[in-house]
Every structure is written in structure tokens, then in C-alpha cells.
Design a protein around this nucleic acid. Structure first.
Lengths: 129, 129
DNA sequence: GTAAAGTCTATACCTAGTATAGAGTCAACA
DNA sequence: TGTTGACTCTATACTAGGTATAGACTTTAC
């Protein structure tokens, strides 16, 4: 299949597929006589793996590490588990930050609920502090 | 005061201050004979305003809009209130996304709590799906 | 034969800064 | 007066994960 079909089946844009290839995340495939990329079912599986990882917000470098690990089936998988665990810690931390931000924004919003003039705006006054 | 002092007083790095100036977020100031930037108390206030906004995750463009609004003290401040409100909506949305991600990660983590070999790794198996 | 759709590479752009190189400025000290 | 060190200047490249273009080529359908 050509890149357009792979794009539709995988849900990744054509540019993204080419970008992953350039990043050495996605193996360079065979080419047709006219230099078109030709993929098969295993390309689709590989791309879906990458997409799954990206949906977990793993970075491209981390996905490379995972792919590298996958190529050593007899080694320990602890690095994989650690990666996921560390991500959970990071996400938890980020949620806490955003909750705090939300609180600040909500306090800010309640400082000016009615429609005032700019010079009397409660939000702007808070921002000046 | 020179940029180093402003940097210390504001908590913005020197590069960031110059960056804001280049982005037309922070007014270009006077220069000394030797071409050094010379700031005063009002520069510090302006920079603190920007920093306050950035701590709320407002984009540079949004901050520009706020600054523009501030220059029209007799206009309505509704655009300011809308901006803050929209940010709260966005942050709330982002928190929900991250909560879902956290759940997925936690399910994933519990798929492989013991230390296995890569080929038997529960996390990698889930990622393959 | 030709038009449309698909693909190719290379390049620039996005955000909000950060990091660097190489040059110039200024103050203090000998 | 010379020089050392701290500070500042501009310009440029880099970060992450793509997205968007231009201009050329290939393939497909009629």
C-alpha cells in the first residue's frame, strides 16, 4: 500500500509518517519504481504501536527506547515498567499544577463578574499585583 | 538599571527579557551611550505583569491583547473576563484529558507488576493492541 | 493525450523560550 | 595606563512534535 492508504488506516497524517521515518522511529520502507513508499501490514502494526505510545504522551526518544527494548525479547522488561511508572508520576504532578492554575483562574474570574470599564476591571487589578 | 538587575528583580532571565522585547510584548527601552538597555521602575512593573500572565499560561498573543485593552481604560473589560473564562474552560478540559491518561497508564502499569522478560511484558502487549 | 489525484523532497513555520559565539563596554585594581 | 573580569550586545541555532507550503514528478482515469 502507498502512504495515503497507510495514513488513512493508521490515522497518522502523511507528513507525520514521513516525519517519523526521518526521526528513525519508523523504518524506511521499500520504494516503487517511481520512488513511492510501499508499505505492508507490518508497517501498519509498527505505526499503530507508535501512535499508541504517543497517545500516552511518550516522547519520540522514549518510543525509540521501547522499540529498542522490544528487539531484545529475552532481556528484563523493567525499563518498560519504569517508563510507564515515571510517566504516571509526571502526569499526576502536571494535574496538580493545573488544578492549582484552575483555582487561581477561578479566583481571578470572580474578581470581575459584572461588566466594568477596563480601568475598574478586577481581573486586571489582580494581574497588576 | 541595566538588564542584569532587572532580570534579578523580575525573575525573568536576561534572554527572556530580550525575547519579550523582540516579540513587541515589552517596550524597547532607552539605551546608554554604550548601547546598554536602561530600565526604570515602570519597566519592572510591566515585566511583572507579563510574568503574572505567563504564570496563568496566557500566550504571548493573549498578553498583547490584554496590554492593548489596558491602553483603553474607558472601554468595556468583557474581553478580559472572557479570556480568563475561556482559559478556565481549557484548563478544565486539559485536566480531564490528563485524568484519563493517568487511568490508562495505571491500567497499563498493573498489566506487568513483576519483573518479566521483554517478550512476556504485559505493558508491551497492551501497547501492541 | 491530458487532467486530476497522489506522491516526492526540501524548506519554513509554530511556541516560548534557551544556549551559544564573537564582539563590545565598563569598573576596579596594579 | 594596562589589563582583568564581569557585564552586555547582536545574531544565530536549537528544543518537540509535528504542520504547511512550493515545485517537481508519477500514476490513474477518461
Amino acid at each position: 500500500m502507498k502512504i495515503g492508504e497507510l495514513s488513512k488506516k493508521s490515522g497518522c497524517s502523511i507528513q507525520t509518517i514521513r516525519f517519523y521515518e526521518k526521526q528513525d522511529l519508523f523504518e524506511a520502507c521499500n520504494r516503487s519504481e517511481g520512488n513511492y513508499r510501499i508499505y505492508d501490514a507490518s508497517s501498519l502494526r509498527a505505526l499503530r504501536f507508535i501512535k499508541q505510545c504517543r497517545s500516552l504522551d511518550l516522547t519520540i526518544i522514549e518510543i525509540k527506547q521501547l522499540l529498542d527494548t522490544k528487539n531484545n525479547p529475552d532481556k528484563s522488561c523493567s525499563s518498560v515498567n519504569n517508563l510507564i511508572h515515571q510517566h504516571m508520576v509526571d502526569v499526576t504532578h502536571r494535574i496538580a499544577e493545573l488544578e492549582e492554575l484552575k483555582l487561581t483562574l477561578s479566583e481571578m474570574a470572580s474578581a470581575c463578574t459584572d461588566n466594568r470599564k477596563v480601568k475598574e476591571c478586577g481581573v486586571l487589578q489582580l494581574l497588576e499585583e
